[in-house]
Design a protein around this nucleic acid. Structure first.
Lengths: 230, 230
DNA sequence: TCTTTTCATGAACGGAGCGTGAACAAATTT
DNA sequence: AAATTTGTTCACGCTCCGTTCATGAAAAGA
């Protein structure tokens, strides 16, 4: 198991703090929060985080100052949080060496994705690879790549996610609705049989040779990714 | 036997309350209902449920408040009930530490499935595994798989459910009508002899070797899954 | 033994559920 | 803006499943 990744959030809005903390912990990070720039810096030296999420509009000491101060001796990755109105000075950001930025209001999942991306770029060891390997099948969610029978296969995003989800829960049956909720999201309000079409496309792309795994239809229930045990 | 699982439902629509209660009790849960957020919280501290089903649109105190309040010190799993139209504030977080959510109008069985899934993830001991293992017989409802004499058997959905139900209540006799009510549902209005045909098909699929278990006919009454206690 | 009741079994019908191709819409790329 | 890729829906056909019915066998009671 990898060591726990520490994230420092410097942000004065307690709601956002709470939100980021919740999502961060859900993703397995240790999250520390500072409500202003000063305590942010203190906490930085105190906890030596692997990444900093930094609001620009801060009381006492603004985000750029914090950023500059951190960058004097450390190259810890920094993700900037900026309000919609606040003109984010790209040049300034580059000069100060930030790694990414996200505009409020933001989708927490989006932020999590960015954190993961930055961490991977800066320190790949910290990030667990979303990779599934089976005989004659390799699904790499990071590179969005599927290799089947030693040759790469072009799989569309949705197909990729569906295949990955099924394959990461082998032998477990899921109803169409469960798959829609998990992969499409709760707000998707469409035909459950959409899943069928994606399954079909996955199947025809992977071919129908005899392997120790397959996407199985369970009539009256749904689908499962079946793997033969030895 | 496992200890009884307690579920708290916080929902103002009495119809939904009744529905969830009915289904919940059928699944062996102790169901408590609160009609608004305030009494919901009181009842939470009062009954210490194992899981909370929480509507978002509530009088007096909205679901997010209840959620936040519960989450202050407890990590009791929460399943959110949300209307289709209600746009949830992404920033606020529709997943403010909730474990799952389901959109109204929903299929009660779907909700039951989610409750079970969440419970299994959070506290596996509370959930009885949908798995029956006997000498020369394995019924796995999660994988929708029956293994008899070390080889897999293809069993149709209804047969599967019937076999599972009987096998999970060994040596208990059920009339045809009871079986219809339990498995087909109360709204089924057909020939009770339908059960006979399914029993027959189960029997011929499982073979008629001498084993320590069998589906027994009790003449004039119904059927039972008989297991020899050596 | 004969009658009656109850169950097992095979066959058959109707329908639900799924695979598939194609069309359309939306997003993405060029 | 055009072209390509991707996502979704629809319609058709087919298969498999659930249900019912008819018939004969088995059990129970007289």
């Amino acid at each position: 198991m990898n060591k726990q990744v520490k994230v420092l959030v410097v942000e004065d809005d307690p709601n956002i703090c709470e939100l980021v903390t919740l999502y961060g912990e859900k993703n397995g990070y240790i999250v520390n929060v500072a409500q202003n720039g000063m305590t942010g810096l203190e906490m930085f030296y105190d906890t030596t985080p692997d990444l900093v999420v930094l609001d620009i509009m801060l009381p006492e000491m603004d985000g750029w100052e914090v950023c500059k101060e951190i960058r004097r001796f450390q190259k810890t990755p920094i993700i900037i949080l900026t309000g919609k109105g606040e003109s984010y000075d790209k040049l300034k950001g580059f000069e100060l060496g930030t790694d990414d930025y996200i505009v409020k209001p933001f989708d927490p999942n989006e932020l999590m994705a960015r954190i993961k991306a930055v961490l991977r770029r800066v320190n790949p060891i910290l990030v667990e690879n979303e990779l599934i390997e089976l005989p004659l099948l390799k699904i790499d969610m990071n590179q969005y790549k599927v290799i089947c029978d030693t040759q790469e296969i072009v799989v569309a995003p949705r197909e990729m996610e569906l295949l990955y989800f099924l394959a990461s829960h082998p032998n477990q049956v899921y109803t169409r609705q469960q798959l829609l909720d998990q992969i499409w999201g709760l707000d998707f309000d469409g035909d459950p049989r959409t899943v069928d079409v994606h399954v079909k496309r996955i199947r025809e792309k992977l071919g129908d040779s005899d392997r120790c795994w397959r996407v199985q239809t369970i009539r009256g229930v749904g689908y499962k990714f079946e793997v033969d045990n030895e």
